[in-house]
């Protein structure tokens, strides 16, 4: 578990962002200097539909405290329909994780367009706060992966 100098818990959060909308939205948040917690680390994927549930489980397994997936708004996918598949897949996966007792606040899908820098920053702020409030992820971590 990571803590800062005030001995405060610092969550590890992986954000998967599609190249065309959300990653650009994250860039826009940067252009506008809209701050959000440094706990968020972004991984660029061509489309939200590239995100395999395995990546998300892998992140949790390796110690992530929250995973958020961002894509173009439904109807705006650069590849026409990718995010519609994402929506079904992640609905199913996250519902399953919650069924297994994993706090539902640890997972989220959010649609962020390339123009929504402010929404990106606000979403990340909010997500980081919610995950932080939950504390470290114990239920999905594989302890053997800790060094």
């Amino acid at each position: 578990m990571q803590v800062n100098e005030n001995n405060e818990f610092r969550p590890k959060i992986v954000a998967f962002c599609c190249n065309w909308c959300s990653y650009a939205g994250a860039d826009l948040a940067g252009n506008n200097r809209l701050a959000y917690p440094a706990d968020i680390k972004i991984i660029r994927v061509p489309c939200s539909c590239r995100v395999n549930p395995m990546f998300i489980l892998r992140a949790f397994q390796r110690g992530a405290d929250g995973v958020i997936l961002c894509g173009c708004h439904p109807g705006d996918c650069h590849y026409t329909s990718g995010n519609y598949y994402t929506r079904r897949r992640m609905a199913m996966l996250f519902s399953m994780l919650n069924y297994l007792g994993i706090e539902k606040e640890r997972t989220r899908v959010e649609w962020v367009s390339a123009a929504e820098g402010a929404k990106f920053a606000a979403t990340m702020q909010d997500f980081a706060e919610k995950v932080k409030a939950l504390g470290p992820n114990k239920r999905l971590e594989d302890l053997r992966c800790k060094q």
């Binding site: 519609y84 598949y85 992640m90 609905a91």
Partner: peptide
């Protein structure tokens, strides 16, 4: 498969 009016992940959960 998909429908344009599918519910969002959060709603499903």
């Amino acid at each position: 498969n998909y429908q344009i009016a599918d519910p969002e992940a959060g709603e499903v959960v």
